[in-house]
Amino acid sequence: MKLEITIDLEGADDEAIRDILRPLIPELAKRLLDSGFSAQPATRAQSRRPPKPNQWMSSSDVAEYMGCHTLTVLRLLRSKQMVGYQSGPKASWRINRDDVEKYIRGEGMKKKRAR
């Protein structure tokens, strides 16, 4: 099945866009269901597999996992509110998934993890 839709929305306000798209949604959902696709949009949790226990993650992976911005994770690491490691002052951070889970549960830093 191939579906192409081209709509020029330049200069249109939100209400005009809704008026254009509203009649298309039921037909599109019906065609997707008929062809075997799910009409449910993938959520963030569905689109990415959760990391395995004891897996090392980058700061961007942690940010996506926690649902926050990468700069927030970097701030937590620099302020030592979350455990992470760098091989040098400008190297990327590596954070263990178990430490992320502890932070989320509110356990904080009790001791440094052995490398």
Rank of each mutant, 00 (worst) to 15 (best):
G11L: 08
F37M: 10
G108Q: 03
S87Q: 10
Q55L: 07
M109E: 13
L28D: 08
M57D: 01
A12Y: 07
Q81C: 08
K80P: 09
L3H: 13
E64M: 06
Q55K: 14
L74G: 03
V73E: 03
K90V: 13
K110L: 14
R97P: 00
L74V: 14
G67V: 05
I25L: 12
T43Q: 03
L32T: 09
L3V: 15
A114N: 10
N96I: 05
D61K: 02
D8P: 04
P23S: 07
N96T: 01
P26V: 13
D99L: 02
K102V: 04
G11V: 06
M66H: 02
I20Y: 00
G11H: 04
S87C: 04
R105Y: 00
D61S: 10
T43V: 12
C68Q: 00
M82E: 03
R115W: 00
E27D: 15
A45M: 07
A91Y: 02
L28H: 05
L76S: 04
R78P: 00
V100L: 01
I17G: 00
G88R: 02
E4Q: 13
S79E: 14
N54R: 13
S59G: 07
K2A: 06
R113G: 08
K110T: 15
G67W: 01
L74M: 09
K52R: 12
S60W: 08
T70S: 11
R22C: 09
K102F: 15
A12L: 14
S59K: 02
R115G: 11
S60Q: 13
K30I: 13
G88M: 00
L74Q: 13
G88W: 00
L21N: 09
P50R: 13
A42C: 11
S79R: 15
R18D: 14
T72M: 03
D34W: 03
D19F: 02
R31I: 13
D98V: 05
P89Q: 09
L21P: 06
M66Y: 05
K80C: 09
A45I: 10
A63H: 09
D99H: 09
A16C: 09
E15C: 01
K112Q: 13
G11P: 06
I25G: 10
V83P: 01
M57I: 06
D98M: 07
Q46G: 13
S47E: 08
V73A: 03
E101T: 13
L76Y: 02
K30Q: 15
T72K: 06
D14Y: 01
M82G: 07
R94A: 08
S79H: 10
D61A: 09
N54H: 14
D13T: 07
P41N: 04
R75C: 05
A29N: 09
E101Q: 12
C68Y: 04
E27L: 14
R48E: 07
D13E: 07
T6R: 07
R113T: 15
M57R: 03
T72S: 12
K52T: 15
L77G: 05
K2N: 11
P89E: 04
A16K: 06
E107W: 02
D13V: 03
R78S: 15
W56Y: 11
T43W: 02
A63N: 08
K111H: 14
P51H: 09
A12M: 12
T72V: 04
A91D: 11
A12V: 08
D8M: 03
P26E: 06
L3G: 10
L32P: 02
S38K: 05
